[in-house]
């Protein structure tokens, strides 16, 4: 399934794969890099995890500036695209299945924004990260600063966004921007294996419940999280009892 956005959606068993397919740099042609409805339909087929990767050597070098310059001529249309892009990343962020970014090569700008909207980030030892927007008098416009601040801290996020410097995999791990660093050319294999181990033999109900709880504890106070966890547990327990009876 390919579309005008140069994104491939394919399925391997229970795992959904979203591949940025614009090699070699995998530039993103527009902020709304994939149609939300198409993505929703894809997720709706019952995949238990989603892995986002880039085709070839790189994850993504970010937005295609030439193409953005062209699009921005119509400011209203471009603002709409930015809004759509934000909705898209919020949708990925809120998905109730694990979303893994399998990162290799360069992961810049909008590419890094996509990676930050994932639940788990795996990268190769030679991966480079940056928010270079500042060099063009811009800033990450898809929530990247906020997500980076939540993951690291405010000062780290400000530093990376304001100086636009590149950081390597080791530094990214230290700053908790990535969760695991693997050997060269291993990121997709590692991510697939991780996704399998996490979701094989797990029902979507259980996966959704764990994802809900994790997301609750990022948004609510602990009392409310606990109340909802006990409700989620009871619902699953009753379901399991029902299954046993039949």
């Amino acid at each position: 399934m390919e579309n005008k956005h140069k994104i491939l959606l394919k399925q391997e068993g229970d795992i959904g794969l979203l591949q940025i397919n614009n090699p070699p740099q995998n530039y993103l042609e527009r902020p709304d890099f994939v149609e939300l409805d198409e993505l929703k339909k894809f997720v709706g087929t019952g995949i238990k995890s989603l892995i986002i990767s880039g085709s070839g050597r790189h994850f993504s070098a970010g937005a295609n500036l030439d193409s953005i310059k062209e699009q921005i001529k119509d400011a209203n249309v471009f603002r709409e695209k930015m809004e759509k892009g934000n909705h898209l990343l919020n949708y990925l962020d809120d998905l109730e299945i694990p979303v893994i970014a399998a990162i290799s090569g360069v992961c810049f700008g909008a590419g890094l924004e996509i990676a930050l909207a994932c639940d788990i980030r795996i990268c190769e030892e030679n991966t480079l990260f940056a928010f270079p927007e500042i060099n063009h008098d811009l800033f990450p416009g898809l929530g990247g600063t906020r997500r980076l601040a939540k993951l690291t801290d405010k000062s780290t996020a400000l530093e990376l966004v304001l100086n636009g410097d590149m950081i390597n995999a080791k530094k990214a791990l230290e700053l908790r921007i990535v969760d695991e660093v693997v050997k060269k050319k291993q990121t997709l294999n590692y991510s697939m294996d991780l996704a399998k181990k996490m979701t094989n033999n797990r029902s979507l109900d259980v996966i959704n419940a764990v994802m809900q709880s994790i997301s609750n504890s990022e948004k609510m106070d602990i009392e409310e999280v606990i109340k909802r966890d006990t409700q989620l547990f009871s619902t699953l327990a009753l379901k399991s009892l029902g299954n046993k009876r039949t």
């Binding site: 033999n201 259980v206 602990i222 006990t230 547990f233 699953l236 399991s240």
Partner: peptide, 13 residues
């Protein structure tokens, strides 16, 4: 999770 359940006593947060 192996029993179709989740840690329900604060284990997740």
């Amino acid at each position: 999770a192996g029993f179709g359940l989740i840690p329900g006593l604060g284990g997740i947060p």
